[in-house]
């Protein structure tokens, strides 16, 4: 096996515990895995950002500017550090699809930790790409992540074409009109899955639609808290 990121060969260590039954092959080598920064310690209960406060300043702002927040909470796994920025650039923008394999076990663990106690009937909904963007990219990164989770995954959202989120400023992003269309309303709780939570606008736009059309509870699971 070669590391998905640095291509160095991964040589599994043989110990008494795995002598007869080998461990699952690791997607990345230890030295690359060490450079990924997992969020830990004190975090905002709403958005997963590392902070001393119980609710971070971003989420206070959301609270003050919205009547009711359609999103119960967002949970993220990684910080957006240097290596993660490089991985995302190569994965999303260069289109190296296989790199999502790096995140599989991390997402499974995050699901176990934060969502497994919620209702059984919970459904995973990936944040969609517009048709044009999907054609350009060839795959939807959020869907690739959503499919790692051990529950039902459905595409019920559509996205209108617009400018890339990453090219807008913070206020422009928060002010944009809702880019989503809900194809099939759903009456089960939903986990929205996306790659990066930056301002939280994208998730809240999607959550708004779902909530208004009868969805009981909406959560967010994102790979990165930007």
């Amino acid at each position: 096996m070669n590391c998905l990121w640095c291509y160095n060969e991964i040589i599994p260590e043989i110990t008494w515990t795995n002598l007869f039954q080998l461990d699952k092959p690791k997607p990345v080598c230890n030295s690359c895995a060490d450079k990924l920064e997992q969020l830990q310690g004190d975090r905002c209960i709403k958005c997963s950002r590392q902070t001393d406060a119980e609710i971070c300043s971003d989420c206070q702002w959301w609270k003050a500017n919205q009547e009711t927040d359609p999103l119960e909470f967002n949970y993220s796994v990684f910080a957006y550090n240097e290596l993660m920025q490089e991985i995302i650039a190569k994965w999303k923008y260069r289109g190296d699809y296989a790199l999502c394999g790096i995140f599989k076990t991390y997402l499974e663990d995050a699901f176990q930790e934060r969502f497994s106690k919620l209702k059984r009937e919970i459904v995973v909904v990936p944040i969609p790409l517009s048709k044009e963007r999907a054609k350009e990219r060839g795959f939807n990164q959020a869907k690739a992540l959503a499919e790692f989770l051990p529950t039902k995954c459905t595409d019920i959202l559509l996205r209108k074409h617009g400018e890339k989120q990453s090219k807008k400023t913070r206020m422009e992003r928060i002010d944009t009109e809702n880019p989503f269309i809900l194809e099939n309303p759903i009456n089960k709780p939903v986990i929205l899955v996306d790659d990066i939570y930056t301002t939280g606008t994208t998730l809240r736009h999607a959550a708004d639609l779902l909530k208004n059309q009868g969805c009981p509870a909406i959560y967010g699971l994102t790979l990165i808290r930007g």
Partner: peptide, 11 residues
């Protein structure tokens, strides 16, 4: 071999 991978292509 390890420098090829599969993609579920939307095109």
């Amino acid at each position: 071999a390890y420098l090829f991978a599969k993609i579920p292509c939307q095109l």
